[in-house]
Amino acid sequence: MIWFTVAFCLLLLCAFFCLYRLQQGPTAPDRTVAIDVLGTLVVGFCALYALRTGKGFYLNIGIAWALLSFVGTIALAKYLEGKAFDD
């Protein structure tokens, strides 16, 4: 179906915007925000791919990715704050 291809291309465009901010971003938090958004976009991509191929396990990948990207974001935020992780 052509519409799936269009949707994938548009999501890739979003990912490209994120990569632009990742490369350009004047400060470290800017880059972290870009990484966070990129993680959420990957989840959407996984879901669309699951629908396209009809294979449910891509959704499991999406769930795992969402949770891991959350942990990564929190760790990076704590690092930016200049604090130990158990604080």
Binding site: P29, T32, T73, I74, A77, L80, E81, G82
Partner: peptide, 14 residues
């Protein structure tokens, strides 16, 4: 939202 909250706080304190 929790991630956003942590990032905003981290950026400000940083």
């Amino acid at each position: 939202p929790v991630g956003a909250h942590a990032l905003a706080r981290g950026a400000h304190l940083g």
